[in-house]
């Protein structure tokens, strides 16, 4: 009985979830990619955040870190040298990622300029 009720609850929640998508205010819709979950989430730190903002969403499907850097450089020429610099490290799921690392659609990539403590 318990599992049946859980299934029923789950099933009955689906129409309302779909409805909330339909009812989403138009001004919040940034692109068709958002509905498909294909936006790449990017976070920047340090001087990169000054240049590009702390967060950015890009309409991109699966891509490598290198491709993501190139896409950001194309869209933001003033930050081109910084984002393409290999001194800026990419981080995915809290692990430093190489240029060939593939990021799935809807994934999050963080870019770290050189760090300094002390």
């Amino acid at each position: 009985m318990k599992s049946g009720r859980t299934l029923q609850d789950h099933t009955s929640s689906q129409p309302s979830a779909a409805k909330s998508l339909v009812d989403r205010p138009v001004e919040r819709v940034t692109s068709a990619f958002e509905y498909e979950g294909l936006q790449m989430n990017v976070r920047f730190y340090g001087r990169l955040a000054d240049l590009l903002g702390e967060q950015m969403k890009l309409d991109m499907a699966d891509c490598s870190i290198g491709q993501l850097r190139a896409a950001i450089a194309d869209r933001h020429p003033l930050a081109r040298a910084e984002i393409l610099s290999q001194r800026v490290r990419a981080c995915v799921h809290d692990v430093i990622a190489g240029e060939d690392h593939l990021v799935g659609a809807g994934g999050t990539v963080e870019f770290f300029p050189p760090v300094s403590g002390g």
């Binding site: 730190y45 000054d50 770290f112 300029p113 050189p114 760090v115 300094s116 403590g117 002390g118």
Partner: peptide
């Protein structure tokens, strides 16, 4: 201290009347 200066995960900015500057480890560091 030598490791903290170069590897601790911070981004350091100096704010003054003349503006702000991000600071990175030096060659000495």
């Amino acid at each position: 201290m030598d490791r903290l200066k170069t590897e601790a995960l911070f981004w350091k900015r100096e704010d003054g009347a003349d503006g702000s500057t991000w600071v990175e480890p030096t060659d000495d560091d």
